[in-house]
Design a protein around this nucleic acid. Structure first.
Lengths: 339, 339
DNA sequence: ACAGATTTTGCATCCGGATGCAACAGTGCT
DNA sequence: AGCACTGTTGCATCCGGATGCAAAATCTGT
């Protein structure tokens, strides 16, 4: 038994003996429909396997109920969780996700073309877009929430984890525990998160009268290892505290320290990361890091977006969340106060 | 300068001094348009920032250019790469991804409702759906490709990595290397992949006159550790070869072996996994495993789907890919022939 | 320059649901 | 019964592009 032609609201209307309008109103919350008619229509609909056509309704209501979620490097361990959370929360609002996975910066325009064609109601962006691309959203009045990014001098709503505060926390602990030779492995230098984390750490180190060598990484495992090798060379092996701009590089550095240099972490070298991804908690690493409150951040991102879809004129807002220090065992930290 | 009202093909037509039909034909490959008109239209379109409305065109062509990608546990380390690959490949075909992240089995129906509403042209499914849900796709004539699943007795097109063959390879090597007490940590027992992997391993062990204890896991890190503890208890610590149904459990088991039991892996216990996820290659693990050819598999999934979108009457087809043995260092394997 | 072949163009209509408006039914009250 | 009022319903129309068809424009060959 194959339903060859898809059922429309007219089919349902005919079967239920009502007008097409009535069917439409049944599936549209807030419309005026008598319980009796509603029941008849819903019965007919389920017999026919009817599902309202989102394209037709989007066409006339100008609401696609689609939100673009743009993520640059999905393989970053941190983002899958974010994506899953966001998708789930949006679907609670009856909204589906148009997935946009960006590889290089280059293909962003081609991907954005898709976004425009589908007339998404909004976008959550965890990818690097150019200022022009961002303002284009504004020009088209498509609400946007940036995730761990910062755009247009604060004119774009964003949800961030407090990188500066997190790094200060880590630095305080490392300094208090008596470390002396500091190294930092940054992320790609066009990354806002990396800039924040690195400068947060540097600033606090300076405040405490310390200094740090910085090398650039790429937020991935290999560059953590490579970064450590560079820093070991630069410090003649005297490095004793390593701050990595994310967990993945910290993990790469830990492995490299142990395997390549035979260094005991944290006895002879403290390594800290940032993010709180799942592998950071694994027994081989027990990374000392700052865990981003993903649940609260995604919830904020989604609710900020929904508010702006309802009222596009809401002023931009930047919500910053504090990360939680995970003591772990990859760094010698100051003994807990009152512990 | 805010474009308050979105531009339509009529606006572009007016500006270019042509009819709306001409504009439409400019954006539809294969339509008859003179180069001169085309240029005029494209100029006007770009001046106005025009993007065809995918909902309007989908409504009339009955092609949404949307494909649902359904993934159950995004946090599984293996799927993000699959998702990124699939998204990229689909977008090469001008198709966007409607992301469906399933948490529990329970909410599948609610999520599917979204899928039906958007009249997706097809679906790639890496999630457990009920037979009814799967046949519903067929009834609605929406082509589907399963990813590492098996449906309806082979009546649904699928792309799989050869679990049985992979496990045989691993077992052969483990047996040849002289292991004697085998344990298996399975995945959830409703997982097709787990069934295949476990029975593949068991079958080959039996052929070689060996036997294995099996405990159930959940495809995650913790259940790898828990599984190892169970097996150690069951074997009085004599376990010397552990086959895990995926890498993540193998990693959990390695950590548990080293940290909880102080066992040297692979000297006193060989552990193998399956998938070839990124962390499996990390220096702390160097997991001996079977790497799924993700690129080739996603390419196959996408092209199989595209073919069936063009011609929905193509017969089902199951394409199985062989994984590649990664020797790693988490298991003592047979010396390579000819090595 | 002209008939005929070919391409380009515009017109009108369609896709499937949403909604303002007017007609209609049902309710409560005098 | 009559009237005002709230609650339902159907009609007609609209959203924005796609496309069959016929008219118009361009090209071909002589």
């Amino acid at each position: 038994m194959t339903e060859s032609k898809p059922t429309t609201s007219y089919d349902v209307a005919q079967r239920a003996g009502v007008s097409q309008s009535a069917v439409s109103r049944c599936f549209r919350p807030g419309s005026s429909i008598s319980p009796k008619t509603r029941a008849r229509v819903l019965a007919a609909a389920s017999e026919l396997g009817y599902h309202p056509n989102a394209m037709a309704s989007g066409l006339i209501t100008k609401r696609s109920n689609l939100v673009a979620v743009m993520i640059s490097n999905l393989t970053n361990l941190y983002y899958p969780e974010v994506l899953a959370e966001i998708t789930r929360r949006l679907s609670d609002h009856g909204i589906s996700v148009l997935m946009v996975a960006l590889q290089a910066e280059s293909d962003a325009d081609a991907m954005l073309d898709q976004v425009w064609r589908y007339r998404v109601d909004g976008a959550i962006i965890a990818a690097r877009l150019s200022p022009e691309q961002l303002t284009y959203f504004a020009r088209r009045r498509v609400p946007v929430v940036l995730y761990n990014r910062f755009g247009e001098g604060g004119a774009v709503p964003s949800v961030c984890c407090d990188s500066v505060g997190g790094e200060r926390l880590l630095v305080d602990q490392l300094v208090a525990a008596g470390h002396s030779v500091f190294g930092i492995i940054a992320g790609p230098d066009d990354s806002y998160v990396s800039q924040q984390r690195v400068s947060g750490a540097q600033q606090r180190l300076r405040e405490l009268g310390r200094d740090a060598l910085v090398v650039e990484g790429a937020f991935d495992y290999d560059s953590g290892a490579a970064g450590l090798r560079s820093l070991m060379a630069l410090t003649d092996g005297r490095l004793d505290a390593l701050i990595c701009a994310n967990d993945l590089m910290a993990i790469g550095a830990i492995d490299c320290a142990r395997v390549t240099f035979g260094i005991d972490v944290p006895q002879n070298l403290s390594i800290v990361g940032f993010d709180g991804v799942a592998p950071a908690m694994w027994a081989s690493y027990r990374l000392s890091t700052i865990r981003q409150p993903v649940r609260r951040m995604t919830e904020a991102a989604v609710s900020m977006l929904m508010e702006r879809i309802e009222d596009p004129d809401l002023p931009p807002e930047i919500r910053t969340f504090s990360g939680k220090l995970i003591e772990g065992e990859s760094a010698r930290l100051a003994p807990r106060t009152g512990g």
